[in-house]
Design a binder for these strands. Sequence first.
RNA 1: GGAGGCAUAGCUCAGCCGGUAGAGCGCUCGCCUCACACGCGAGAGGUCACAGAUUCGAGUUCUGUUGUCUCCACCA
Length: 887
Amino acid sequence: MKKELPKIYEPQEVEGRVYEAWEKNGCFKGVRDPDKRPFTIVMPPPNVTGQLHMGHAMDCTLQDILIRFKRMQGYAALWVPGADHAGIATQAKVEESLRENEGLSRYDLGREKFLERVWDWKNKYGARIVEQQKKMGVSCDWDRARFTMDEGLSKAVRHVFVSLYDKGLIYKGSRIINWCPHCVTALSDVEVEYQDKPGSLWHIRYPIQGEADKYVVVATTRPETMLGDTGVAVNPADGRYAGIIGKTCILPLVGREIPIVADEYVDLGFGTGCVKMTPAHDPNDFEVGLRHSLETIRVLDDHGRVAQGYGKYSGMDRYEARKAIVADLEEGGWLVKVEPHQHNVGTCSRCHHDVEPLISAQWFVKMQPLAKEALRVVREGETKFVPERFSKTYANWMENVRDWCISRQLWWGHRIPAWTCEDCGKITVSETDPSNCRHCGSARIKQEDDVLDTWFSSALWPFSTLGWPENTEDLQYFYPTDVLVTGYDIIFFWVARMIFSACEHTGRPPFHTVFIHGLIRDDKGRKMSKSLGNGIDPLEMAEQFGADALRFNLVTGNSPGNDMRFYTERCEAMRNFANKIWNASRFVLMNLTIDSCALPEQLELEDKWILSKLNSLIPEVTDNMERYELGVAAQKVYDFIWDSYCDWYIEMTKARLQGDAPAAKERAQQVLCYVLSETLKLLHPFMPFITEEIWQALPRRPEEDREAFLMLQRWPQQNGRLSFPQEERAMELVMEAISAVRARRAEMNVPPSKKARLTVATLETEVFAAGIPFLKRLAHASEVTIEGVSAAADSEQAAQEGMVEVITHAARLFLPLAELVDLDKERERVQKQLKKDRAELEKLDTKLNNPGFVNKAPAHVVQAERERAEKLRALLEQLEQSAAALG
RNA sequence: GGAGGCAUAGCUCAGCCGGUAGAGCGCUCGCCUCACACGCGAGAGGUCACAGAUUCGAGUUCUGUUGUCUCCACCA
């Protein structure tokens, strides 16, 4: 911290410098330590393609808060960073840039050359992501950064593949899969997003073979697939069609003879009750086709074009073919009618083109056996979701999970470690490149061209990053990890797959807690997206308001698992909070003459009040943190700093700091420093930069390491000797009086510069005597007289003397400002308050007269209510006198 | 069709062992009070969606209703 402190906190100047200092001093190192318990966080590795977006910023912030908290609590905290190779996304980006800049496709370059380009890209953008994360303040161990295509992680991938294959849990087969004709690859089920789109339902007439003028009418949303029809199905219970089951019909335009079969799958109530069967292009038709041995004829190629052999339709794009076929059907008189029809169309989650279901030979992971254990560990609480409701989402998916299609027709990724023998046709699967076929010994073997789904390697992240399959010391010490933080949108993609992978390969769930957060939306509640152009760049926010402010914004004002709207105004508010802390600290430092902030022996009332407040804050915040209620914890620290420390305590110390007693002055400094320093520790996980910067400038406590960083200090502990409940209450009586006087003055529009004598009638003479300096300074009293009288005794007299009377629970205060009083307004005010307090007292009395309440409610609650009623009764009595005096 | 979230101040949202309804922004009034106008002080503003149930006591627990959003499933 510089000697001359600016009045406005400038985060840009501080944040980079502070981070550099931490990094240079190895503050982030996750070190194995036999004396410590490990705490490990699994970071969702961002895609190498990218730019850090708000979702990452949220991930980073929550994780960093947790890891800093645990580190300060004395755990051996490890946070492994890294990046994901993001198969389709990255390949698409590189292909795009290749096309735009050089007019080349990946095929022009060839596999090897193309992959070199992708690696170049990875090196460039991977580094950028790291810089962006550092700007957010994340304290992970950068030396341990991993990439999903590193040698070590690739080895883990091959090991897992071979192991699952050997156990019969990976197989290759021809199945109906989701195919993206734009990305030209197979997709897994979770990579398909369904969108409601307007479409049509075409009713088409298929003539029955050998029966002139007899037809079945089928209804379809995708007429172009009729080229691949190999049957028509009706429900066996459908009386309308009982007579035609077993007959055949002639496929229009194609002329193929196809059977009419009966299958329960057909819904009698929908369309015409007759369904055309296209087993090669529809998952349901495929199932029906299996039951009735229907042929499968694939009519669309990998790019979504009509295959060869269909005359003029061949080579047409599927939508073009649809138009042509509909036109021809109409012309031929086959088209009965067209109805508008809303239906749910599967689209590629990457490029949003319509997905084409089709039959293709792909690799799959058999899910049933894996899901069993993955369900158990969550059901039995070995892995918990926070909030808990997401375990239902998880279980529901896992219970109905289908086999996972893991092969992708891409180049960028882990190439499938399987070789097909050109002699015997059998497959050899191996971790290392085999030179011969395992079955016949032939050297004529060829590796699969396809790569694995990106999530196949991401699923291993918690253990592959720690050295698995080697039994490394890191793995032994840090694994299983503790917490995974991520958005609910990737529970299926990643969380579920990590859990079953870890259970299968390490025998243990990968973490005990999955901390789920919601999505960040724009200020209108819309998803942030490129196409809408409504994305808010976290780095821009950090630049403008500071990463601390951005972090604080992200963590407060929302509850775990719920979506959050992003308001720039809130960033600004948090920036203001940072500035508030800055100036409070500036105030403390400006008044500083001491060089250590040990607590003094002699404590004043206000010292005990703030220390006691702090002392109860500590366990509350700690508790909230441990229960992942980070927003609540942050809010409590915020309130303490702004309300208790700044608005009250600092103001109260000014009397001493600006007085002439050197010892009292020094004691005030000690307590100011002590409380600030402890508070900075509590705030540090949320606002790491500014807290570190200020803490470096503060004097140390004797037990603190002068050279150390705040981020490595011990988390504050509650201290039994710093609890002063009586003084807390006493101080608050004075504070109540101050607020009440200020309110009265404000009502009468008395400017702060106009001081007035203040007479306090109270039984708590000692308390108010101690409060004189505060009444003077904060209630604008020129002088204060304390009268140790029963407050009720002479209110009438006071009123007659033309004093303004202020009534609180513990005192009656008189101000010689009667000339400023508007009697009508005054009467109105008193009546209003009387009404409110009477109602309140009545409520309380009813409650206290209720035997049910007195007998059944906990004693302390009853006691508290009694005290409240007593105080209220006394206050009312005085208000009534006051009202009477006003007439 | 199945599952879940949400409904609290003008707006956006906290409020997680049931015990006097909160914050930020906005609004009104007064203040450049020697840390801070990115500030200080004082206010206005709420039938906690609706109906029941449990309880001495419900914004908070349970059931149902309505509205709204999301996820899963996929009747061509």
